[in-house]
Design a protein around this nucleic acid. Sequence first.
DNA 1: CTCGTTTTGTTCTTCTGTTCACAAACTCCT
DNA 2: AGGAGTTTGTGAACAGAAGAACAAAACGAG
Lengths: 246, 246
Amino acid sequence: MTARTPADGSPHGVASVDGVAGRSSGREIPEATVARLPIYLRALTSLGERGIGTCSSEDLAAATGVNSAKLRKDLSYLGSYGTRGVGYDVDYLRYQIAREIGVTHDWPVVIVGIGNLGHALANYSGFRSRGFRVVALLDAAPERHREAVAGLEVRPFDDLEEIVAAETVAIGVIATPAVAAQDVTDRMVASGISSILNFAPTVLSVPDGVDVRKVDLSIELQILAYHEQRKAVPDIDDNPEQEVIA
Amino acid sequence: MTARTPADGSPHGVASVDGVAGRSSGREIPEATVARLPIYLRALTSLGERGIGTCSSEDLAAATGVNSAKLRKDLSYLGSYGTRGVGYDVDYLRYQIAREIGVTHDWPVVIVGIGNLGHALANYSGFRSRGFRVVALLDAAPERHREAVAGLEVRPFDDLEEIVAAETVAIGVIATPAVAAQDVTDRMVASGISSILNFAPTVLSVPDGVDVRKVDLSIELQILAYHEQRKAVPDIDDNPEQEVIA
DNA sequence: CTCGTTTTGTTCTTCTGTTCACAAACTCCT
DNA sequence: AGGAGTTTGTGAACAGAAGAACAAAACGAG
């Protein structure tokens, strides 16, 4: 912990990296690394809860299923938060990653589409504990309103703008049928939301500056199926298609 | 279309790539491409339903949000299924992709853990229409048994081996709490399942030859949060640490 | 205080994936 | 039939990510 003082002091006395002088956050973190930071964060939380105060890159690599060299390189983008010969302070590193990701404070989130999946998402406790707070559940269907899910009333979709403005919501989750997803997206964007997590099986178009991530359950299964098929028929091809031609 | 005969015949007369000679399925499809094939498949299905018989790589690229050159290269790994100057036959290409992925017939799937998420998955109609058939819902908790979800009875987890053997199930879905996930995995693997889709927020360890894909809802949100944070504070860093250096 | 051990942070190499750009192949029009 | 216009399939350049390997930094023992 005392090791904190040299902060980002790059060992070899180079105070500024890339010639970017003062901007200590000037390090551009590669996308692949960003996608792994949450994994490290979760593993560190778990280690911390088990009372482990320090861990090496090998330990953390084992806990996350990542190659230790890759892990060290990932962490090095954030700064120099380890101690050579010792390892990383679990709590300290966890805080640094949380800060880098931006989950030291909670992000308000709205969920639109309270069907089966929306229910599950609303009830998912992992959001709360990992930096997100569901502030509203919205659905266009009147028969779903007033129903209480996870302690929140389901409200009309038309309340979107009001809620986004009142709570400064930046992140929206779409769990509607595919056909409604683009409309919901447009309304979200218009109301000020600039990051969307989309569970609807459709490609959304959004203006620049808005991020969309998509989670598609059947795509994941299809990727598994592809590899599964290759296992089953390791060598032979299952296309009996000589005849087709002509 | 006639172009099928030369199989992988690379134009410049190189019949065997990599020296792998005759293996027509020897084309190794890059992982990144495999992950996009289901997207193309879905878009083609949608085009087909709209009565569109032919599409160019530009059309399909627009529908999927992918660069058209990348799309063409992806498709070229499967074979030469387009016609220069014309484009791709929607149905024909769709069939070829489905065959490559291995979803021309349905894959039986079991879902373990019928909580909120398990419910949602069991009811998700997209599985059925995209090459998967949920053959059983399993849960360790006795109070969940006999409950009917999506037309299937929830059965005891101990029935796993019997079901997997009876239906030759190769793919399992884990929607249990994190703490149970590794045990469920071990049982699945022992019973013969070799592809797992994991929704539990934990790293699974599996023997070689078993594939695991993980879907983690809060990780997706955290990735969005990272970028969102960067938008909010485009330049200034939120760590006020100039003083440190010494 | 010096030596040996540990473990980080980083450089260099290799691999994988993306994008560009264009010849080859096809259609359609005249 | 020939030429103009499209669109594919792919080689080659480029970019990004992963992995191996090692010097620099910290610690502890003697």
